[in-house]
Design a binder for these strands. Structure first.
Lengths: 118, 118
DNA sequence: GCCGGCAGTTTCCAGATGGATACCATGAAA
DNA sequence: TTTCATGGTATCCATCTGGAAACTGCCGGC
C-alpha cells in the first residue's frame, strides 16, 4: 500500500499546512516567495513546521528553492514547480466535490478563503 | 480553516483505511457488503478501526448502513451513496496527477492495486 | 560592541491515532 | 450444554504529529 500512487499523494497533501503553503506560493504575481514572507502570511505556523513542509515539498518536486547569496542578508526563496501547479488544479476537483455533495459553505465559494480560494 | 471545504474533505479521505474501505464497497456487483466481509477483504484492519471509519463515513453521508433483522444472526450491511461514488471519481483525478507528475508506478496503472484500481 | 533581521535548528511536550488483544450479547446448531 | 458466527466494545499501549519556546550563525548598521 505504501507504494500506491493515491496513498502517496494523499500523504503529501493531507499533512497540516501543506496546502496552505502551496496556495500561498500560488498567490499574487511574483513566483518566488521568501521564507519569512511565507511565515508571516501563514501567521501561526512555527518555523519548524514551515521548514519541514518546504523540505518535503522540495523532495517531492512540488516546490523549488533558490538561495540568493548576492545580497546580504542571504535570502531563501521558494516557488511552485509545474507539478505543484498541477496539483492545485486537482485540489479544485476536491473542492467541487465538497461543494456539490457535502459542505455548502458560501465562504468557500469566494476567493477570500485561504484554503479554497484557488 | 476548519470550516474549509478542502480541509474537511482531506480530513475525510486522508485517514488511514478510509479509501480502502470505499474501494472495497465499490468492488464487484453487489452494492451491499457485510461487516465481516469488509473485515476479511481488508485483511489486517482491526474491528475497532473498521467500525470507526464506517461510522465516520456514515456521518459524512458517503456510506449507508442497513441492518437485516429478518435473518439470524442479524447482519449489518454497508453500501456507497451517490456522494461516495462521486468521491471515488475525484480520487481518480488524484491518481492521474500522481502518474503524470510523480510516481510512475506500473503497479498502479492496472486494476489489481486495491487502492488505485478504480 | 551591541542590536536587529534572515533563515533556520533544537529540545521538550501534549494530544491524537491506530494497532493488539481480549471481551461481549445474541441465537441457532450440534 | 457447549460451540459457532455475527457485529461489534473495551483497554491498553507505542508511535507519530505538531506546537511552544528558546537558541544559533551570519552580517550590516548604528
Amino acid at each position: 500500500m505504501k507504494d500506491c500512487t493515491v496513498y502517496k499523494t494523499l500523504t503529501i497533501i493531507g499533512k497540516k499546512w501543506t496546502l496552505l503553503i502551496l496556495f500561498e506560493l500560488d498567490r499574487g504575481s511574483a513566483p518566488y516567495k521568501r521564507f519569512n514572507e511565507l511565515r508571516a502570511a501563514l501567521d501561526t505556523i512555527t518555523p519548524k513546521v514551515l521548514v519541514q513542509r518546504l523540505r518535503e515539498l522540495e523532495d517531492d518536486g512540488l516546490v523549488v528553492r533558490r538561495v540568493d547569496t548576492t545580497h546580504i542578508p542571504i535570502t531563501s526563496e521558494y516557488a511552485l514547480t509545474e507539478s505543484g501547479t498541477a496539483l492545485l488544479r486537482v485540489v479544485a476537483a476536491i473542492k467541487e466535490w465538497g461543494l456539490a455533495y457535502k459542505f455548502d459553505n458560501e465562504a468557500c465559494r469566494c476567493t477570500s478563503c485561504k484554503m479554497c480560494g484557488i
